[in-house]
Design a protein around this nucleic acid. Structure first.
Length: 381
RNA sequence: GGGGCCGUAGUGUAGCCUGGUUUAUCACGCCUCCCUGUCACGGAGGAGAUCGCGAGUUCAAAUCUCGUCGGCCCCG
């Protein structure tokens, strides 16, 4: 059964409204998934995220395996219960982390051998074990192990990593055929979804080939990996566009790790449905707020006497109650509340942006909305 | 009255004995930039000191000598 329902297509662009049915409820797309790598969206509580109307969180299998360890989550009774979050969760496999964080990794067709970046313990993860771990986590959407290459990357290596990612995708698909599922019951589907991940670096033919083969295998949705890893933005856009053209209309499309508000708008316009990114929370912790007029480095000196809110058009708790001057003071004094207030605002800003995008698509005015938004939103800085 | 120690960016300091690779060290603070499947206490860059003041020795003084001012300590 196809978990994705295409609800509406914008008449003037390829933007679309959809609904993705998961075990813990429906997700309205286009959507943004706040990132809670280690089972926590840094500085924010599940209550605050619900309040901000986050529909789904992203968590990370690699991080959770290393700490606290899969056995503890199993004992806790799945990830939802462990972290006290009742809405959907997508778990990233950790492919990205193994290639960016882990030490001394050895990649073979069977899997990846690496040392923990925390304590040096040795692990050997295979596409099969990654799926088994995600079954135990009980995430609503599972991601297969993949190999995300850096930019720039030679075509030979990109082809090799793409082929390996495809092999691993087949292996992952085969692994979920064994139903080990147990007690998820409060959603539209009692099945964990599995997405395929398109790799192939910046090479159009590799990307196209990868997308087509994944579609042949058949997944519940398709993710685009290895974008925004340092390549020029025009290239990210072109490649993403080419990939989307080779994905079925009636499946969810997820652009992994993206991005800035302007990146999200570009991607929605060419038909991407799902996003996740550390930017709102990481920037929040480092003193940059997103506002309707662009990025605001509230940590900077000019705001020391600015008693207006981060964004005067925002209705979040931070903006309704606190000034830039106070938040800057908190950040400069290393008060945890400062990190929290900016992170909360940024998450609210992103989620509100996605709501506005969904509204605009429904009314065939996505292109105008994007233009108006970018007109006001200063991307120059 | 006698003796000793100390004075180097906003703060705390290295260098002084054995003068010259010192455009004077480092940390914090300050200023700016960066962050795209995470990184709370983060990364990069920058500004900021006529080395308390004055005189002397010397080709050359933060560095040696004398004086002086300020701070601290010990003895009377």
């Amino acid at each position: 059964m196809n978990p994705f329902r295409l609800v509406y297509e914008d008449k003037k662009s390829k933007a679309r409204r959809g609904v993705l049915a998961t075990a813990h409820g429906d997700i309205q797309t286009p959507c943004f998934m706040p990132v809670g790598t280690q089972g926590s969206v840094k500085t924010l509580s599940p209550g605050e995220l619900e309040e901000a109307e986050a529909q789904i969180l992203l968590s990370n299998t690699y991080h959770l395996i290393l700490r606290p360890g899969i056995e503890i989550i199993k004992k806790a009774g799945q990830l939802h219960r462990f972290i006290s979050w009742r809405r959907p969760i997508l778990t990233d496999s950790g492919g990205y982390q193994i290639f960016s964080l882990a030490l001394l990794r050895k990649v073979s067709n069977e899997g990846v051998e690496f040392q923990s970046h925390i304590n040096g313990d040795k692990y050997f993860l295979t596409p099969k074990t990654i799926i088994e771990y995600q079954k135990i986590l009980g995430s609503d959407i599972m991601m297969p192990l993949d190999e995300c290459v850096h930019y720039p990357c030679t075509k030979d290596y990109a082809a090799q990593a793409m082929k390996r990612t495809l092999d691993w995708a087949r292996c992952s698909k085969a692994q979920i055929a064994n139903p080990v599922r147990n007690d998820i019951s409060n959603g539209a589907s009692d099945k964990q979804l599995l997405f395929g991940i398109v790799q192939g670096s910046t090479y159009e033919d590799l990307r196209k080939d990868c997308a087509r083969q994944l579609v042949d295998i058949g997944f519940d949705g398709y993710a685009i990996g290895g974008i925004s890893v340092g390549e020029p933005k025009s290239l990210s856009y072109n490649i993403t566009n080419k990939i989307v053209e080779n994905l079925p209309k009636d499946a969810a499309r997820y652009l992994m790790g993206v991005g800035m508000p302007e990146d999200i708008l570009e991607a929605v316009e060419i038909g991407v449905d799902m996003f996740d990114c550390v930017i709102p929370t990481r920037y929040g912790r480092n003193g940059t707020a997103f506002t309707s007029e662009g990025k605001l480095v509230v940590r900077n000196a000019p705001y020391s006497c600015d008693f207006s809110p981060l964004d005067k058009d925002c209705s979040c708790y931070s903006c309704q109650n606190f000034s830039r001057a106070y938040i800057r003071h908190l950040l400069c004094s290393n008060e945890i509340l400062g990190l929290r207030l900016v992170s909360l605002h940024n998450i609210c800003f992103y989620l509100e942006l996605m709501r506005k995008i969904r509204e605009a698509i429904k009314e065939d005015r996505f292109v105008e909305f994007k233009k108006e938004f970018l007109n006001r939103y200063d991307t120059a800085d």
